[in-house]
Amino acid sequence: MKIGIDVGSTAIKIVFSADNQMIWKKAVPTRPEQPALVNELIQQGLDDCCLLKKDIKTLCTTGYGRNLINGSSRVVDEITANAAGIHQLTSGRARTLINIGGQDVKIIKLSDTGRILDFKMNDKCAAGTGRFFEIVAKILDTPLNEFSFESSDEPVNINSICAVFAESEIVSLLAQGIDKHRIIKGVNNSVARRIANLTGHADLDEDVYVDGGPALNQGLIESLENELLYDIKKVQDPQFTVAWGTLFC
């Protein structure tokens, strides 16, 4: 039995694998004292699967907090782990991967053998990341899972690039009495635009996959498709590709 842990900036993701099958997974928000939290999660998983500590063959970690976890048998960076994960999950079909993380966005080009050909990553700015959605969700008082919906409303334009300024822009939109759905659509578009900018609107190799927590938001994916003009696919558990990938590095 193998365990893959992704200690991310906003959430800790943990997966259990037996015979290359995901047998248990869990994602919890990050909080201080990560090592204790991780141990707690592992114990919880072992209990759920009726396993013992000695059954753990390998423990792989990645993510911003990867070096904080003790007893890890393999530590890899998120980009390599992510590439390995998506390559395994899509059986090598993915050529371009857009990972929308808690505080960064990565665009990874893969070869048919799963090698990383090139990658891009935004630097210290929350614009276009999961963090941005969290801020918006808080202002709109709408849970993130309600960000995708069917509606024919015209989206509003959100111009601010900075997450902090966007916050005040949204507050003023609300004050004008603009419908929440229009704002959410606007936010999705604005994030998609920023991600598209990071790709440089260059030619991407298909298939294009997207993963990371915000990939659960179907509305964002639609906006991204409009922006990039590519069919965008996603895997079943987009949040767990990185943790899963650590097991295949």
Binding site: Y64, V76, D77, E78, I79, T80, R115, I116, D118, F119
Partner: peptide, 11 residues
């Protein structure tokens, strides 16, 4: 930066 450098090293 470290994340990028490590991934770069892998490539």
């Amino acid at each position: 930066i470290v994340t990028r450098l490590e991934a770069f090293r892998q490539t």
